[in-house]
Nucleic acid binder design. Structure first.
Lengths: 334, 334
DNA sequence: CTGAAAGCGCTTACAG
DNA sequence: CTGAAAGCGCTTACAG
């Protein structure tokens, strides 16, 4: 079916040298005279030679593939992160393979095993909800380095690059206090999601520092989607009609809250404040523009690649934890 | 650095059989007794064996990798498409490798060559702006099957899965006529982008069927981004202050138009209508909700994988062209 | 029903 | 400075 590929053998023949020499030239190894070097390069060019990386990898054990496993590829937070992972990896000569765990433990396992079989040099993983110390055992067993990002695992020792969720919650809490909101509801997100727990704790921490009647009325977990936000908003306002601020697990949930408030005839930002996390690009253009917390997905992606490359080169060093400080973006919705 | 991987050899030893037998069992080939089969399976399980696909691929020439090359990974249209490509490919036992051409011809070339080197079984490609018949020559030379999606190449013969852009333009044109808009401006998008040309032509076609003073004032190409839409809107309204409808190359451009109109003190959907293409999920929750054209990225992704798998199995058949009909979603912005 | 052996396309010590 | 040869982990005709 497929045409026979041009191999190093043909290149060698065409250039009138041995295959060892071709390999040396192509990998810039050993001492090769300039004349030979040019001959080989020209021959490779003429024949349109593309080296078979499977063979290289098999023989040398070196791989130039990076595996990226995220919870939801179609979430802009992760697609931005992925875009930078891909770009930085490419600069270092690595190709990135991306897979979607769809936040399912089982699928995460399959995806990781498949990628090991493909011979990836290492992994960048945002752990699926419910992951624990045993989840990544297989990577240790196979000696494949990995770094976690965005979603950490409480008890697990590995490199981690993410943002400080507790601090993000604190920023939101302080802001709400300053603006005088008193009846607050936290909506959306999977309860097993450790980032959610941290954000909520940060929020409670900030609110608790004040002696006042301020309290969280409701903690309403649910799908971290627009639809989830819509429904959580409706039921929150039914159960706690005096709610004056909705803290949303992410901007998707927040846009669902906008929709629900509109339906209920409440003015977003006037009758009820809405605040999100992520700062997706569109949120600046919503009506009213969304107050949210910027979490720098692209920076996380970039840092994760750097950490992984370091780990691939030297798997012995101590684990590193990078937590980027979040930053509050105040707009019209609060 | 890496632990020595468990190979078929260890499995064979552990099961007390030859490596050929292990291979047969694992690939369900040949006649193997149930007893032996079980022994091998158990041994593989015990040792946590994951077959080295590089070796399989090298020997058999068969690959289970699919390469997906898109113009912009962080655009939700493509990340949704990618999500379904990945899912359907996974069901068929394929792993998908995604790369971002960033709509650059040069990067597209690099990415394709790298992937060939990785031994992908085939490609799904949304052609970068400016691609032509020579761009994908390298794939033909190497005998690697591919299908194009979303962005086609006028003169090129290959499978294609996309949507009917002309028809999408017609839908928009008819809708604007019905609502009585007369001063229309088409904004955003790369002028070399064939989808843009087709949409514009469809729009002109629909408008031209009417005998009236309706006309397109301005065709303002530009970046297909929020920022691009913002700026194009400002300059359009400066040059043609009577503009009553903005047709935006995509929803990103449209949200930029919202922003600009807000800044100019015009009411979106009342003073100036805005219409987009893509129907990104959030657009339903914008204020006002966006009238846009649904283009079914997930369906395109799914169909593209199916077409590619057919092409991998039988590269001789005639090229197939799938054009999904677009569908107008009318909301508050028109 | 099972196994010995060749070979996929490379890389890499080693010899000259 | 260049090349002959072994070997990475598999698959596959072929022999028994």
């Amino acid at each position: 079916m497929r045409k026979p590929r041009v191999s190093i053998k043909q290149v060698a023949k065409h250039a009138g040298v041995s295959i060892a020499t071709v390999s040396h030239v192509l990998n810039n190894k050993g001492n090769i005279s300039d004349a030979t070097r040019k001959q080989v390069r020209d021959a490779a060019q003429d024949l349109g030679f593309i080296p078979n990386r499977n063979a290289s990898r098999l023989r040398s054990g070196q791989s130039l593939l990076i595996g990226l496993v995220v919870n939801d590829i179609s979430n802009p937070f992760f697609s931005e992160l992925a875009a930078d992972v891909e770009a930085v990896a490419a600069d270092a000569g690595y190709l990135s393979v991306m897979a979607n765990s769809r936040d399912s433990l089982e699928r995460q396992k399959t995806v990781i095993e498949t990628m090991i079989g493909q011979g990836v040099a290492g992994f960048i993983i945002s752990a699926a909800s419910g992951s624990d110390e045993t989840t990544f055992e297989v990577l240790k067993e196979h000696g494949v380095p990995f770094v976690l990002c965005v979603r950490d695992i409480a008890t697990y020792a590995a490199d981690f690059v993410g943002f400080d969720n507790f601090q993000a919650g604190v920023l939101v809490g302080r802001h709400l206090l300053e603006r005088g909101y008193r009846d607050i509801c936290f909506i959306g997100g999977d309860q097993r999601n450790i980032n959610r727990t941290d954000r909520l704790n940060g929020l409670l921490h900030a609110l608790g520092q004040q002696e006042s009647g301020i309290c969280i009325h409701l903690d309403m977990p649910g799908p971290a989607t627009q639809k989830g936000g819509f429904e959580a908003t409706l039921s929150s306002l039914k159960r706690a009609p005096r709610t004056d601020a909705l803290v949303c697990f992410n901007d998707y949930v927040a846009i669902g809250a906008y929709e629900a408030l509109y339906k209920l005839g409440k003015r977003t930002g006037v009758d009820v404040a809405v605040i999100g996390f992520d700062n997706v690009p569109e949120s600046a253009a919503w009506n009213p523009p969304l107050t949210t917390v910027e979490l720098f997905p692209r920076t996380i992606g970039r840092r994760a690649v750097i950490a992984l490359l370091a780990r691939i080169t030297d798997n012995g060093s101590a684990f590193e934890r990078v937590q980027l400080p979040p930053s509050l973006v105040v707009r019209g919705s609060t």
